[in-house]
Computed example of a mutant assay.
Amino acid sequence: MTQSLEDYLEMVSFLSDEGEVRVTDIASRLGVSKPSVLSALKALEEQGLLEHERYRTVTLTQTGAIQATEIRDRHNFLTSFLRDTVGVNAETAEEDACKMEHILSDETLKKLKILARAKRKV
């Protein structure tokens, strides 16, 4: 899955925590056009990650919810790691985590989690 589609899936997950998810809300939060959102939603729907009928709300499938949770967990860990372990300011940590969550391998992420646990014990 591309970084862009991961961002859309993550946003649908965030918005679903707040209630119904509409195309307009996704476009507004991500700063993109509605046609861009519709294109991404179609791709995610083809992958079985969400359901969307035109002019209706967007709903994650069970598979989509699991994948979105994994993406959000990576993002939250990296934000906290950069802020609390590395000492980066909160705004920069958030921005950098958003970029890093898409490119780090599972192996690297596991090693960072070990490093973070070890640093907390010190």
Rank of each mutant, 00 (worst) to 15 (best):
M11T: 15
V58R: 01
S28P: 01
F77G: 01
S16V: 08
G31S: 10
L49Y: 02
T59K: 13
E10N: 12
E53C: 02
K34P: 11
H52M: 02
T24R: 04
L50R: 05
E46F: 08
T69D: 13
Y8S: 06
R22G: 09
L41Q: 08
L44P: 03
V12A: 10
V37W: 10
Q62R: 14
R22V: 14
K42F: 09
P35Y: 13
V58M: 05
E10I: 05
V58W: 00
S39N: 12
D17Y: 03
D25R: 13
T24D: 11
V58L: 03
R54A: 10
L50G: 09
V58D: 02
L30Y: 09
R56Q: 14
Y55N: 14
R22S: 14
G19A: 10
H52R: 07
S80D: 15
V32Y: 13
G31M: 10
V58E: 04
V32H: 13
G48P: 06
L50Q: 04
S28F: 07
S33I: 10
A65N: 11
L38G: 05
E18Y: 06
V58T: 09
Q47I: 01
S16I: 10
L50T: 07
K34S: 14
L50K: 06
L78K: 03
A68E: 03
G64D: 04
E45D: 12
L50D: 06
L44T: 04
L49W: 01
R72F: 00
V21M: 10
E18F: 06
S36N: 11
T79R: 13
L49P: 04
A65Y: 04
R74S: 03
G31W: 07
L38C: 08
D25G: 15
S36I: 00
A27P: 09
F14Q: 07
A40Q: 05
T69M: 09
E10C: 12
T79I: 00
H75V: 00
R22E: 15
I66N: 13
T24H: 00
F77Y: 05
L50C: 08
R56G: 06
I66R: 14
S13Q: 09
Q67T: 11
L9H: 04
G64H: 05
S39V: 03
S13I: 00
R56A: 10
L44G: 03
I26A: 08
L78W: 07
P35C: 12
G31I: 08
L41Y: 02
S13A: 15
L44A: 06
V21T: 15
A68V: 06
E70A: 10
V23Y: 02
H75C: 00
D17P: 00
D73F: 03
G19C: 05
L49C: 09
S33E: 14
D73R: 12
